[in-house]
Design a protein around this nucleic acid. Structure first.
Lengths: 149, 149
DNA sequence: ATTATATAGTGCGATATCGTATTATAATGG
DNA sequence: CCATTATAATACGATATCGCACTATATAAT
């Protein structure tokens, strides 16, 4: 790697990859057996953003192939944590709804996770997360837009 | 999620996950068919940190299970991009060496990747990567240490 | 209207990743 | 020494992720 603006960005993506790996392991250690962050994330999204969206909407939100979202939803559906209904606006499509079981699962997961998050927070240099979050959002948005072009 | 220090951290991990997803897709679109970031990363590590390490060392460096590293190395070995030799210091272990083909692959991948990195850099708010990289390193180190305890 | 093109979801196959168990070798304690 | 425990790598099975192809429906073009 030359001494180039891209060099720093390359290193940053490197760190992002490792942090993703570590935080995912942390999360999944607290989830019930057989559940992964991908499952939790969908439920969390359905509550934060609202349900009734289509599977494709979700795939786009998480930037995963639609086949991956089909699979993730099928797992959640099998556990009755989401329900899929026909989309009255589009016969090809479906709508995704979170169930009470899904809400309960998400709430429990967050409760089980919180102590770890607090522990991490306590060990971080003060204000680190607040400090970098806006830049991380900006980075995500740039990548997101570049993807379309 | 309550209004809590953990809330910001939670959001940060969320962004990290999405950025990881997007940057990986960007990378892999430039790699030859059948190669993933995991393969490139190992080769890159062998050059940056030096080869001759054991598979377990590599698994620790990337924070993946050792079975995952066994698999990744077997792919690279099949393509003759790394060579595994017995470890004279430990009969249970091996040492990992990068080959000329591995070096060439890595160099080509970086060359093919550079334009994308430059494009991203150009669209980012000035100095963003430089600004947050130290904090991201600190975050990674905290997670890394917490993992041991 | 009819045809052509685009889009939503899924089936299927390939590979990646991960957990558990196994084998071989080291290190340790008696 | 010998037995016990720990460690490195792998085999194996399960699930996740992804790309490609297919079906059904919608949209656009003429």
């Amino acid at each position: 790697m030359p001494d180039h603006p891209a060099e720093t960005l390359f290193r940053l993506f490197n760190e992002v990859g490792i942090i993703e790996q570590l935080s995912r392991a942390l999360f999944e250690a607290r989830l019930p057996d057989g559940f992964l962050v991908s499952h939790f994330s969908v439920l969390n999204h359905l509550i934060r953003i609202g349900d009734g969206r289509t599977p494709l909407d979700l795939a786009r939100a998480f930037q995963v192939p639609k086949t991956t979202m089909t699979h993730t939803l099928s797992v959640l559906e099998r556990h009755e944590m989401v329900a899929l209904t026909p989309n009255p606006k589009d016969g090809r499509s479906k709508r995704v709804w979170i169930t009470d079981a899904g809400r309960a699962f998400r709430a429990q997961a967050i409760a089980d996770l919180l102590p770890d998050l607090v522990r991490v927070s306590a060990r971080l240099p003060g204000g680190l997360a607040d400090r970098i979050l806006p830049d991380m959002v900006a980075l995500r948005e740039v990548l997101d837009k570049m993807r379309d072009t």
